[in-house]
């Protein structure tokens, strides 16, 4: 099994003709993902040239793409000014999972897009995230396909490249993954640690979880509490930013609302108190996961 994406994924790429969109569509197709449609307004009727002569039809809207191809998942490479609108369009077309790669989307745009997605029961992953990959099944986003391998470990991370760093150590040590999920680093993200932990808990094949956090906010602390109260598979954690300078304060309001400064120390302590083994370096995740799996 796997979570979020897998053998049933039928993907529409929003922004398929852009520099990043086209490059990563090729990579997703080479990995074996079923890319069934692309959307670029004004380029409907054209065909995207995939690897080995495979063509992907391009539509003007997600609505048309869904009607014609039965797409159920979307990935967004649309530039920041229009990306929230692209997410809303996908949600309106009844796409159930929208993976938003775009970095730098205005936060107030995303407040509306997330509210719209919640109302329609759609899941948004990201934005400003690397996407999700279920090794051997489907890759949606930009996580390099050659660093993952199928196996029993679920990976969740707020970061992009740090996820790759952790995953490549697992793969090199022969520890495969069910699914690797990058939830994104923006202020407003559609899917948080707890959402992904719940999915892994229900997955059946995920035997241990790697959770990679960073400084800022309180998502990691809440995830730690959820793990302690609900999860019976082992979790290994890593927090980036132990040497980072103290972050920018959002006036008094930020401190009042979170009740926390979100330091690495605070988060590592929350992990440890919830029975999550904390790795000092990314490479140390491997040893901790191996002993968790063999316990």
């Amino acid at each position: 099994m796997a979570i979020l994406v897998g053998d049933d994924t039928r993907l529409v790429v929003q922004g398929i003709t852009g520099r990043d969109g086209s490059f990563h569509t090729l990579q997703m197709m080479e990995y074996g993902t079923a890319v069934v449609a692309g959307v670029t307004p004004g380029k409907g009727g054209q065909t995207f040239e995939g690897p080995d002569g495979a063509g992907v039809p391009i539509f003007n809207s997600v609505d048309e793409a869904v009607a014609e191809t039965g797409a159920n998942t979307s990935v967004v490479y649309v530039p920041p000014a229009f990306a929230a609108s692209a997410i809303e369009e996908a949600v309106d077309a009844e796409i159930s999972l929208v993976v938003a790669i775009t970095e730098g989307i205005p936060v107030q745009d995303m407040a509306r897009a997330h509210a719209f997605a919640r109302d329609h029961g759609a899941r948004v992953l990201g934005p400003n995230c690397p996407g999700v990959i279920s090794p051997g099944k489907a890759k949606v986003g930009i996580i390099p396909g050659n660093i993952v391998t199928p196996g029993p470990v679920g990976v969740i991370s707020r970061s992009g490249t740090l996820t790759y760093e952790a995953v490549v150590h697992l793969t090199n040590a022969g520890v495969g993954q069910t699914t690797c999920v990058g939830i994104g680093g923006d202020t407003l993200i559609g899917t948080n640690f707890v959402d992904v932990l719940e999915a892994f808990a229900d997955d059946g094949d995920t035997e241990a979880i790697v959770m990679i956090g960073e400084i800022g906010g309180t998502d990691e602390q809440e995830a730690a509490q959820w793990v302690q109260e609900n999860l019976d598979i082992p979790v290994v954690g890593f927090i980036a930013g132990q040497t980072a300078p103290p972050g920018r304060r959002m006036g008094h309001a930020g401190a009042i609302i979170s009740g926390s400064s979100g330091t690495a120390e605070e988060k590592m302590k929350a992990f440890e108190e919830s029975g999550i083994a904390v790795a000092k370096r990314p490479v140390d995740i491997v040893g901790l996961i191996q002993s968790a799996l063999s316990a």
Binding site: Q242, T243, R281, P282
Partner: peptide
């Protein structure tokens, strides 16, 4: 010089781990 904020912070942490200062 790193790509990605998470990896950049993890790199700084590792510099410190090996006895250096970023």
């Amino acid at each position: 010089c790193v790509n990605g904020a998470g990896l950049a912070m993890a790199t700084m942490d590792l510099v410190k781990y090996y006895g250096g200062e970023p």
